[in-house]
Design a protein around this nucleic acid. Structure first.
Length: 808
RNA sequence: GGAAGUUUAGCUCAGUUGGUAGAGCAUCUGCCUUACAAGCAGGCGGUCAUAGGUUCGAGUCCUAUAACUUCCACCA
């Protein structure tokens, strides 16, 4: 028997254990079609928030749906403990920078810290009921992952898509590492636009350059003017003297200079922005790099050496003012590029780095994107736009510690790179030695290890390879190339999705998955993203689960449209609680009336039973259609609507038959029993996608066939009850009107109707005649007369019997 | 500067091929009805952002505009 009240905390614990003991979510090969999910490994870098719950729930529900539809679900899990986020966490906890701690100790702390946080994440996803196969759980810094990541690197090198080159790269002087274009964010800051007088050496002609970055004056290598510029073209070919610095640079022509922007004269520094890099390459300009790795002016710059960038800026402005060469200073708000991990403004640096070619195969990447079905569709555009706008090859070198090492050494003499052999992977060049003893180029026997580690995304982008156990025996390559679906939020289309596509294309020549499912974000309020740094998430998910149950939290997480942002709303939680509670109560009711029920072949259903069976069948069609589009929220909405109709209308009608067979007949009772049995079974299956716990509890208690509801299969009904659906709905409308009449008289719904006279059309008359006992019993009608109407129905007379409160 | 999404009841949001506007919450009124008061029945509440157009008919299709959100680019 089901308990009077459902104790979520106790039952959820029980079923978690049951699923674990019975390996319900375990993947084993068989001959069913495979549905495979490339799950986002959460970044294990701190506090769990409600956003984690949201983004995993929708995808998890899809896997439950697919399982119920007969797919062999391949649903692994992973944790991303790799890279800068983990390092920053450790630095914050220790209150020290990595280089102050020392490489080895720092690495140890990273492992220890991420392990600790990982346990919390594991617990949360467990308690949420995430039905992943945890025996296939990977970590992004484990030896096997490092091996696959290094294998991928070597493959790309051998195919010529990955190269080592001295080249300008984006540099974060807070994190002291190079970064990639995809790791940039824009931020609006207040600054000043400074108009500075320059003069020509030849004739002392004065001209003005406007800049937001006067500290770059020592890095100026040349000045540009547009050759079409009538007013200033005469400057071309002359020499400019830089004020305050007193250095002379040539004035050159380039059509990229906008005549009407700023002052029409541009200083070119190495490097202030991307155009500078372009010009530097195009005109083979000298390199004047004036910043240190941690954001200071290098010592060799007179007057400013050793100052931080912003200090230098202030001092330069001051000096320029004193020299009387500042025309004006304007206040300015503009957008600058910052590093997404720390929010600090990004600089440029030139050093030897590893790059993956992302710029010369754009057409292929676009084609790969076209081979993938995007849900929702418009997210495809974001991908295309990103690919089309990529300006840099992907720099994967990070001058950091905690990450996948490059399996590379360099000849101490000639600098030739020596790569590890695939069979020797994983290797750490800092501790391992190359397999050859002499440089193949110069014969030198001394090698220098690569000290950089790879970008986190360089490893995250091989999750399909990790999933398929690439390179191992008994791998899953045959079933996971490509995988069925990738799921993630919209913010990492340009990183995770893009890089994975790049690598899959280079490795295999095809797309990594057939479909992509993009979820939205959880907003703390309107237009306010939940963020760890702001700590603006009001709700701790563990606390919420404790308070409302995992099923109810899942209701919130499963609502809403795919790809659409959601605000955490108490009212949605309450609505979920009502729904879950109702499922429990109606199940209790049905259980009560099934104690003597035997499931037999039966086709002689009562009219109203045919109505609800047909309605369920119709509903489930739409339900399936939504789920096939991965619109879990819409599917749930659709199902919920039917469910309340089932409870409030159908159950109210059928209960008389169930309670009083002596009055309505045993066959009519059996028809009702068979109907509620069938529909509850199917409702539980459908609801199990969203509420895995309570549905399991009810299922095992009522339908005890010794197996988890999550391993059953949805088989759609195949009735032909179109007429019953249509006319049954009309009957419900009549009932509703009559109930309204009772309510308007402020009397109980049990109040008998002394006389009801209605006009109905022929179809409806047939329907009412076929369901006459149910109809009269539901409304407590003592006398009913039916007249003819052309269409629909009209209530001619309704007289309540206010003397009696009960018919029986 | 380019692009995408959103705009429907006081609030949160549904509305699948165009056919008389829906749900929950809130509010108000009744009803303790042999599953459920965490319930049931009902009321109030909307020129579907604005302006045009296509159509017999537009919340739904087309065009333009506005506001909000987001992505991207430029930032001398």
């Amino acid at each position: 028997m089901l308990d009077k009240k459902y104790n979520a905390q106790e039952k959820e614990g029980k079923w978690l254990q049951y699923w674990k003991d019975n390996a319900v979510y375990k993947f084993t090969r068989d001959n069913r079609p495979v549905f495979s999910v490339d799950t986002p490994p959460p970044t294990v870098n701190g506090k769990i928030h409600i956003g984690h719950v949201f983004s995993y729930s929708q995808a998890e529900m899809v896997t439950r749906y697919k399982r119920l539809r007969g797919f062999n679900v391949f649903y692994p899990f992973g944790f991303d403990d790799n890279g800068l986020p983990s390092e920053r966490l450790v630095e914050k906890e220790q209150g020290k920078k990595a280089h102050q701690i020392g490489r080895e100790e720092f690495s140890r702390l990273c492992y220890e810290t991420t392990d600790r946080y990982e346990e919390e994440f594991r617990q949360l996803f467990g308690q949420l009921g995430v039905g992943a196969d945890m025996s296939m759980c990977y970590k992004t810094v484990s030896p096997s992952t490092i091996k696959i990541s290094q294998t991928s690197f070597l493959d790309l090198v051998s195919k010529g898509h990955c190269y080592h080159k001295e080249s300008p790269a984006l540099w974060c002087n807070e994190c002291m590492t190079s970064i990639a274009q995809a790791e940039l964010e824009t931020k609006t800051i207040k600054t000043t636009f400074n108009y500075i007088h320059f003069t020509t050496v030849e004739d002392g002609e004065q001209f003005t350059i406007a800049t937001t970055r006067p500290e770059l004056l020592p890095a100026i290598v040349c000045v540009f003017v547009n050759p079409e510029d009538e007013k200033r073209a005469h400057l071309i070919g002359k020499t400019a003297r830089i004020p305050a610095i007193n250095v002379e640079v040539p004035i050159m022509a380039d059509e990229k200079v906008a005549i009407d922007k700023g002052t029409g004269v541009v200083m070119c520094c190495t490097f202030g922005d991307q155009t500078d890099i372009e010009w530097w390459k195009k005109y083979n300009l000298p390199l004047k790099h004036i910043f240190t790795d941690d954001g200071r002016i290098i010592d060799s710059v007179p007057n400013y050496g050793g100052l931080k960038i912003k200090e230098a800026r202030a001092k330069v402005i001051e000096d320029l003012k004193n020299a009387g060469v500042v025309e004006k200073i304007e206040e300015l708000e503009h957008e600058v590029q910052v590093h997404e991990r720390c929010g600090k403004e990004v600089e440029y640096s030139v050093m030897k780095q590893w790059f993956i070619d992302t710029t010369s195969h754009k057409e292929d990447f676009i084609r790969m994107g076209n081979n993938i079905k995007w849900h929702p569709e418009h997210m495809h555009k974001r991908y295309d736009e990103w690919v089309n706008n990529i300006a840099w090859d992907w720099c994967i070198s990070r001058q950091r510690y905690f990450g996948v090492p490059f399996p590379v050494w360099y000849c101490a003499d000639c600098g030739e790179a020596v790569f590890a052999r695939v069979e020797d992977l994983p290797v750490n060049p800092l501790t391992d030695k190359p397999h050859i003893h002499n440089c193949p180029k110069c014969g030198c026997s001394e090698f220098v290890p690569e000290r950089d580690v790879m970008d986190t995304w360089a490893t995250s982008s091989v999750t399909p390879l990790i999933n398929m156990k690439y390179g191992e025996e008994n791998n899953y390559e045959d079933i996971l190339r490509p995988m069925s679906i990738r799921v993630n939020a919209s913010d990492i289309i340009r990183t995770w999705d893009f890089y994975t596509i790049v690598k899959s294309f280079y490795h295999f020549g095809h797309q990594p998955w057939n479909e992509v499912m993009i979820s939205g974000f959880v907003m703390a309020g309107k237009g306010e993203k939940i963020s760890k740094s702001k700590n603006n998430s009001k709700s701790d998910p563990m606390q919420l689960i404790k308070e409302y149950s995992a099923d109810v939290i899942r209701y919130w997480a499963g609502s809403g449209r795919l790809g659409t942002d959601i605000v955490f709303a108490d009212e949605t939680i309450l609505r979920g609680r009502k729904l879950v509670n109702k499922i429990w109560n109606v199940s209790k009711f049905i259980e009560m009336h099934l104690t003597d029920f035997e499931n037999k072949e039966f086709n002689d259903y009562e009219y109203i039973d045919r109505w609800i069976l047909g309605s369920f069948q119709e509903m489930e069609k739409g339900f399936i259609k939504y789920l096939d589009e991965y619109e879990v929220g819409l599917a749930l909405n659709h199902l919920e609507k039917f469910f309340w109709n089932f409870c409030d209308n159908y159950i109210e009608i059928v209960k008389h038959r169930l309670y009083r067979p002596e009055e309505f007949g045993e066959k009519a009772r059996y028809s009702g029993q068979k109907t509620v049995y069938t529909i509850l079974y199917k409702l539980l299956q459908d609801f199990s996608i969203f509420f895995p716990f309570i549905t399991e509890e009810i299922y095992q208690e009522l339908f005890h066939d010794n197996k988890s509801i999550h391993l059953t299969e949805i088989k759609p009904l195949e009735f032909d009850f179109d007429s019953e659906i249509k006319n049954g709905d009309m009957i419900i409308e009549i009932i509703s009107q009559a109930r309204g009449e009772k309510t308007n008289h402020n009397v109980s719904l049990k109040t008998p109707i002394k006389k009801l006279d209605i006009s109905v059309d022929q179809q409806l008359k047939d329907a009412i005649n076929q369901s006459i006992k149910d109809f009269k019993a539901t409304l407590f009608i003592q006398s009913l007369t039916l007249q003819d109407a052309k269409e629909g129905f009209i209530v001619n007379e309704l007289e309540l019997n206010l003397d009696e409160t009960d018919v029986k």
